[in-house]
Structure formats: structure tokens, C-alpha cells
Write a protein that binds this DNA or RNA. Structure first.
Length: 489
RNA sequence: GGCGACGUGGCCAAGUGGUAAGGCAGGGCUCUGCAAAAGCUCCAUCACCGGUUCGAAUCCGGUCGUCGCCUCCA
């Protein structure tokens, strides 16, 4: 079955055909590292993590490039203040200190969320020569012009400018943007290189004097360097479709005389109910309505945040609420319970083919999951197939017929591979990797044995006490015909 | 004003022509010393209006509403 992708460039679902058989180059716009990441960033990068995981699971050799924007860009035209410089001043730190701090913070957060690192995480600051070279090419070809030490892209020279976002320059609301430095030939032209004012700290030498690169050129230059002039997939957040993504295309295709990305995948924003009337608005740093990844992880396990992200299709906006995250949490419990029960039964299961009639159901689960994912990475539908599968698994494992190891292994592999490797919402063990955890597990097992004796003697006061006290400590017991299961928060 | 996305049960949400997946919450039942877990079961006709069609949540037109982008933003 072929993979289909909704290509924002052209707005239609297409059969995916990589440039080179079996290999995929993908570029995703990364963060500007001037503050901690929030759940909006998490939605985006978890989504592409899922995409890359699925591509790899499908057998593709994927080269995943995601930039780190560390050259700083203006907060608003009016003040002309650089975000990184602003933060540096606020924290009384060197700009590159800020950049390094939040780059590490970003990777820490993504690691914690189970987001596999990109193969290459190029820094914009480390690729200024490449950017200058591309700007020079654009000037040579007549697509850009220099004014007072700044260089601008001449939008009128690019006949298909606007093809990604379906915009016409003349139809945009020009009044929105007050031009402070009105040296551009047209208000729609955008900066490739900006002259550095005397107080601007982040600055580099260039053929046009000291300055710093425009916001869009880094992605064009770095994508070209690591993926080539033309590559397969370009990803990012829908909120950057214009101007950022549009400008990337304009620069790259003008400079390279080649198509840029063949497929554009853009992720819907994460919204938060407005405090005033509850209408959803985009989570963003500037509105102050964000929840940092670190804060979210202090309350919810990463798997739950991932499952929450997969509650809607990646291209749709999702509203963050306690209700929604709770639903994800409860849904995760159900999946994880079945996965744990499977592992538990594998410990004592007989060899043999008891219950092998279920193998057909296992194959169906794989097929359903695959067709959901191949249909434009429909993770919510894929999760639904796992939930349906789980209902049947629970019926099987809670039935009276003992299940053989072969069947249990097959069930286990579905959870481990589809839920674990692909979606990253299930873990292969209950942890217990360090000595403290092992000791804790041993102690709990001991209490369970004592409680079992008490129950045998109908000493329910003691047995209930053990269960209640453990519950208060965050350890839940679950009595089953074949013994007691436990889990810790 | 322009561009784009969207409006499906109490909540989240899949579904792009053949009579509504899944999760959460809620009711009933089974199992259980009790509890938990699990299973079974009940709960919608898809914002509104008009049209196309044998047949539409799904296509076309219109209306209302929400969000995003057009300025830094994943």
C-alpha cells in the first residue's frame, strides 16, 4: 500500500514518490532558541517525530534535518529589537550564552518527550558563509538588490511568488506593516541581509558591511547544504506558511533554478481557551498563554502528552484543556494496561499454540494501523485501531482459556512496534532499570504476598489496609484470578 | 479587505457519495470478599438554508459562527 501525503503545495493528497527510491530527505523548521519550549512547539515536533518514525518503520532511509535558529530576529518592526538580544539583556548574559542555554533546554525537552533527534541540527550562526553565498547568487541573477548595507529580495522578479500560501502581493493588507526603514523597492520585498546598527551585537562581516542574515535565508541555505537543491519533504507549523515558507521557496528556487521541496507538510497550531470567553486562541510566547514542556512534564507522563498530540490529525489545530489531556491520560492507561497484562502473561505462558486463532486478529491490527498511517499519517485513526485491538486483546487475556506464548508474543510485538517504536506512546517495560526501582518493586511484591496470605485467611482488614496504604503512596493493586498486578504512578 | 482551516453525541475526534470509527465522561449489567481492571450494553443523523443524485456528514451554491496567517511565532 502506498503512502499518501496531503501536499500543502497544491492542496491535495498525493501518492508519495521520493526523489530517490528508498531514501527520503526531510527538512523541518526548528525553533528560535531564546526561551524554553512550550506545548505548541511540542505538538509540532512530536508530529514530525511520528512522521519520521513511520517512514523509517516503513523501510525508508530518512535524512532528517532541523535547524536551530540562533541568530536572532526582530520582535517587532517598531522597536527593531532582537529577541535573543532582548533576552540576553534581561538575564544579563551574552547572546550566545542565551542561545546555548535554550538550545540545550530544547533538546532536553524533546528527549524527555521521546522525540528522536534529527540527524542534523544545523545552527544558523554556523552557516553564515553559506547564506552570504546564496544572497550573492540572488543578486547576480537579478532577484535581489542591495541598499545601504542591507539586501532585499525583489518579489516582483519571482513570478510564482505566493504559490504555497495562495497570496497575491497586491491583495495583502499593506497598512498592517508600518515600514520604519523604507528603503525597499516594494513593501512586499523581504530582507536577505540586514545592516547591523551600532548597538546590534550579533553581527557578521559580509560583502555589504557588517550585518546579520534575514530570517528566511538560513533555511534555504542549510536545506541546500544538507539535502540538496531539491528534496522530498519540508515541514513546519502552519503559522509560518507566510511569509517564512513562501520566502524560502522564492529564494531557493530563484537561486538554484530547481524546485525546492516536493511535498509540504504543515502542522496545525495548538490552541488554548481564552481566559476571558473560552474561545481557543493560539498558544504563543507573546500572548503569555503557554505551558512550558517542563511544566507539562511535571504533571503528565511524556506518553500522555504524545497521545494527546495524536488526538487530532497533525494538520488540524488542537485545543489544550484539562479535559482533553485527561481523556488522553485515561486512554493511555487502557492501552498500557493491556500491554502490561500481555507482558505479565508471557512470564508464565505455556509454549504451544493455544489461542493461535487470535493471530489473524493481530494481523488485522497491523493492517488497519498501516492503512491509517499511510493515509497522510492519520495517527488518531491509528490510535483508534490500537484501542479496538485492545478490546479484543482484553477479552482474550481475561478469558478462561490459557494463551500460548506464540500468540502473546505476536500481541506484544504490536504494542512494542506500533505503540512503542512508531507512536512512542508505550514503553517496553515498567522501568525498574535502576536499583531503587528494583528494590521498590521487590518491596511491593513482598507486601502483595503478605496480603495474599491475609486474603487466604479472610483477614480483609489487613489486606485492605495494605492496598489502601499502597494506594495512598501511588501504587495501585489489581486482583486477578492468577494473582495480583500492581502499577505505580 | 485578502488568503487558509474549520463547525460531527456532554467533551475530544475519525470519517470526502451508500444510511455515523475510537477515546473520555455518564447509565445499566457481568465478574469480584470488597475494590480495581476488563467485558457486554445504552446514549448523535453530522451549524443552518437551498441544490445535484436512486442515495450526501461527505459534491455545488449561499448564510451564520470560530480560529489561523497577512508583523516575531512550531
Amino acid at each position: 500500500m502506498t503512502l499518501r501525503i496531503f501536499n500543502v503545495l497544491g492542496r491535495q493528497k498525493q501518492n508519495f514518490q521520493p526523489l530517490e527510491e528508498g531514501r527520503i530527505g526531510i527538512y523541518v523548521c526548528g525553533p528560535t532558541v531564546y526561551d524554553v519550549a512550550h506545548l505548541g512547539h511540542a505538538k509540532s515536533y512530536i508530529s514530525f517525530d511520528m512522521v519520521v518514525r513511520w517512514l523509517r518503520f516503513s523501510g525508508y532511509d530518512v535524512l532528517y534535518v532541523q535547524n536551530i535558529t540562533d541568530v536572532g530576529h526582530l520582535t517587532e518592526t517598531e522597536t527593531g529589537e532582537d529577541k535573543i538580544l532582548k533576552q540576553a539583556r534581561a538575564l544579563q548574559a551574552k547572546p550566545m550564552q542565551i542561545v546555548e542555554t535554550y538550545t540545550r533546554s530544547y533538546f532536553d525537552d524533546m528527549d524527555a518527550l521521546g522525540v528522536q533527534r534529527p540527524d542534523i541540527s544545523p545552527r544558523a550562526s554556523g552557516h553564515v558563509p553559506e547564506q552570504i553565498k546564496m544572497i550573492e547568487e540572488l543578486i547576480d541573477k537579478g532577484f535581489a538588490y542591495e541598499v545601504n548595507g542591507s539586501v532585499y529580495f525583489d518579489v516582483s522578479e519571482d513570478e510564482d511568488y505566493g504559490k504555497l500560501s495562495n497570496r497575491r502581493v497586491e491583495e495583502q493588507d499593506e497598512g498592517v506593516r508600518e515600514e520604519v526603514r523604507d528603503e525597499k523597492r516594494s513593501p512586499a520585498d523581504f530582507a536577505l541581509w540586514k545592516r547591523a546598527e551600532p548597538d546590534h551585537i550579533l553581527r557578521w562581516d559580509s560583502p555589504w558591511g557588517e550585518g546579520f542574515p534575514g530570517w528566511h535565508i538560513e533555511c534555504s541555505a542549510m536545506a541546500k547544504k544538507y539535502l540538496g537543491a531539491t528534496f522530498d519533504i519540508h515541514g513546519g507549523g502552519i503559522d509560518n506558511i507566510f511569509p517564512h515558507n513562501e520566502c524560502e521557496i522564492a529564494q531557493s528556487e530563484s537561486a538554484n533554478d530547481a524546485p525546492f521541496a516536493n511535498y509540504w507538510m504543515l502542522v496545525g497550531s495548538l490552541n488554548v481557551p481564552d481566559a476571558f470567553d473560552g474561545t481557543p486562541v493560539k498558544m504563543s510566547k507573546s500572548l503569555g498563554n503557554f505551558v512550558s514542556v517542563k511544566d507539562a512534564l511535571s504533571v503528565h507522563r511524556p506518553e500522555v502528552i504524545r497521545l494527546f498530540t495524536f488526538s487530532a490529525h497533525y494538520s488540524n489545530p488542537v485545543t489544550y484543556s484539562e479535559e482533553a489531556i485527561h481523556a488522553a491520560s485515561a486512554g493511555w492507561e487502557r492501552l498500557n494496561n493491556a500491554y502490561r497484562l500481555t507482558r505479565r502473561q508471557m512470564e508464565t505462558a505455556p509454549e504451544g499454540d493455544a489461542g493461535n486463532g487470535f493471530l489473524e486478529r493481530v494481523e488485522k491490527a497491523r493492517a488497519d494501523f498501516t492503512s491509517a498511517m499511510n493515509d497522510d499519517f492519520n495517527a488518531p485513526k491509528a490510535v483508534a485501531t490500537l484501542q479496538e485491538f485492545t478490546r479484543d486483546v482484553n477479552s482474550l487475556l481475561n478469558g478462561t482459556v490459557p494463551v500460548g506464548l506464540e500468540t502473546l508474543r505476536a500481541i506484544h510485538d504490536v504494542y512494542a512496534e506500533l505503540g512503542g517504536d512508531v507512536l512512542g506512546i508505550l514503553r517496553p517495560t515498567d522501568a525498574a532499570v535502576n536499583t531503587d526501582a528494583k528494590r521498590e518493586a521487590g518491596l511491593i511484591e513482598l507486601l502483595i504476598q503478605i496480603r495474599a496470605d491475609a486474603r487466604k485467611n479472610k483477614d480483609f482488614a489487613t489486606s485492605d489496609r495494605i492496598r489502601d496504604e499502597l494506594s495512598a503512596l501511588g501504587v495501585t493493586l489489581e486482583d486477578r484470578p492468577d494473582g495480583t498486578l500492581w502499577k505505580a504512578d
